[in-house]
Design a protein around this nucleic acid. Structure first.
Lengths: 153, 153
DNA sequence: TCTTGACTTAAAGCCAAGTTCAAGTGGGAA
DNA sequence: TTCCCACTTGAACTTGGCTTTAAGTCAAGA
């Protein structure tokens, strides 16, 4: 099954200009034309899904191009491709960890402002985490793992 | 305890020019000077940690400034600050979900290239996921939840 | 035949988030 | 005094990832 750029745009949520940009950047090797117009197939659509993942794992366009170039080299590049995927996997695990940290901080802050709202002031945290009630201390310690003591605000 | 820009740079990992940029953008309200030089205190260092979290939750500089402005308004802004934190918390949960999706894809690809390496070709996936061994199918289905059938590459 | 709509290109433009640069200041040590 | 070092400023520059623009092509339908 073949698709026009407009169809692929709807299928992937990427704008036509983004698709042209990706093509120009070499992210879609082997993309054909018919009467000057780009012809996409299911393989390209699948590639675009992989590209989105690689992008959100932190790869830049130029590195994604390198990967796509590898895919054109067949079995000679399996080892390199595997290595790249493993590196991105471990980077993604780290990113998830960081997001969990961010989340912990946000959850502490949600609790904090909830408490501030019901107290009318922030005095309860004047000497955080020591001065906090159990729930607050727990959230605080998850949010700031290294801080064992002290702290205003 | 007071700190110079260089000390804060070491404490936070942010470059001096980033700290100056944040100051200029209004992210550090109430930052004082002594003989023209910026004087940071522990409150500013704590603010910088919060700023990093807000940034990684997806907030832009201009929105972080708005939040920092709210903190100067005392109890009158608790509700708004709480709302902002709750919104960022839910955005962060979504982002973590997306990262888990990305991770699932990368784990499938790791398995895939491992398999390709030991087979010397990609034929095992010619009709994925149907043609895949149990482990591969499981990873595939986590990586592409909507795809119930078909697929080369 | 004429219009319409979806496509094409190269080049320029845009935005966020810094970074770099050039020129200058202030204070302590040799 | 002279030197150095860490700091200051405003302005220009950089980077990545698109998006916009201007001008043009092509095929189908009225």
């Amino acid at each position: 099954m073949d698709y026009s750029i407009g169809e692929v745009s709807k299928m992937t949520g990427l704008s036509p200009s983004t698709l042209r940009f990706y093509d120009k950047e070499g992210l879609l090797p082997g993309l054909g034309r018919q009467g000057g117009k780009r012809i996409f197939d299911d393989g390209h659509v699948r590639s675009l899904r992989v590209i989105e993942c690689l992008k959100s794992s932190g790869l830049e366009i130029r590195d994604i191009r390198k990967f796509m170039d590898l895919t054109t080299k067949g079995s000679a590049s399996y080892a390199q491709r595997k290595e790249l995927m493993e590196e991105q996997r471990s980077k993604t695990l780290e990113q998830i960890d960081e997001m969990q940290q961010t989340l912990a901080m946000l959850e502490y802050k949600c609790w904090y402002y909830d408490e501030a709202l019901s107290c009318g002031n922030e005095d309860f945290a004047a000497d955080a985490p020591a001065s906090l009630p159990a729930r607050g201390r727990e959230l605080y310690e998850r949010a700031f793992p290294r801080d064992e003591e002290e702290g205003t605000r």
